[in-house]
Simulated scan of single mutants.
Amino acid sequence: MFRNKKMALPALPAVLLSMISIQSGASLAKQLFPVLGISGVATLRIGISAMVLYGFFRPDFRKRTRKELLLGLLYGLCLGAMNLIFYFAIQRIPLGLGVTLEFLGPLVLALAGSHKLLDWIWALLAGLGIFLIAPWNEDTVDVLGIILAILAGAFWAGYIVIGGKISKMMKSGDAVTLGMLFASLFVIPFGVFSGDLNVLNGNLLLLGLAVALLTSAIPFSLDMGALRQLPSKTFSILMSLHPAFAALSGLLFLNEQLSLIQAIAITCVIAASIGATLTIKKK
Results as ranks from 00 to 15, higher is better:
residue 15 V to I: 13
residue 119 D to Q: 12
residue 124 L to Y: 06
residue 183 A to F: 09
residue 71 L to T: 04
residue 95 L to F: 12
residue 251 L to S: 14
residue 221 S to F: 03
residue 227 L to E: 06
residue 110 A to V: 01
residue 37 G to Y: 10
residue 196 D to G: 09
residue 240 S to E: 07
residue 137 N to M: 00
residue 215 T to P: 04
residue 269 V to F: 03
residue 259 S to G: 15
residue 154 A to L: 12
residue 274 I to S: 03
residue 45 R to F: 11
residue 19 M to E: 09
residue 26 A to R: 04
residue 77 L to D: 00
residue 105 G to Y: 05
residue 150 I to Q: 08
residue 85 I to M: 03
residue 90 I to N: 10
residue 258 L to T: 04
residue 154 A to P: 00
residue 118 L to F: 09
residue 17 L to F: 14
residue 165 K to N: 05
residue 268 C to T: 11
residue 92 R to V: 08
residue 202 G to A: 13
residue 60 D to C: 00
residue 142 D to M: 11
residue 226 A to Q: 00
residue 194 S to N: 10
residue 104 L to R: 02
residue 84 L to I: 05
residue 23 Q to K: 10
residue 32 L to D: 06
residue 149 A to C: 12
residue 31 Q to E: 12
residue 3 R to C: 07
residue 80 G to P: 06
residue 243 P to L: 10
residue 107 L to I: 06
residue 239 M to L: 14
residue 129 G to H: 05
residue 67 K to G: 11
residue 229 Q to R: 12
residue 237 I to F: 12
residue 33 F to K: 04
residue 111 L to T: 02
residue 203 N to Y: 12
residue 77 L to Q: 12
residue 169 M to W: 05
residue 22 I to R: 03
residue 108 V to T: 15
residue 269 V to Y: 04
residue 261 I to E: 15
residue 178 L to A: 05
residue 6 K to P: 00
residue 54 Y to H: 11
residue 129 G to A: 10
residue 67 K to R: 15
residue 221 S to Q: 06
residue 185 L to P: 01
residue 77 L to I: 15
residue 263 A to Q: 12
residue 15 V to T: 09
residue 9 L to A: 07
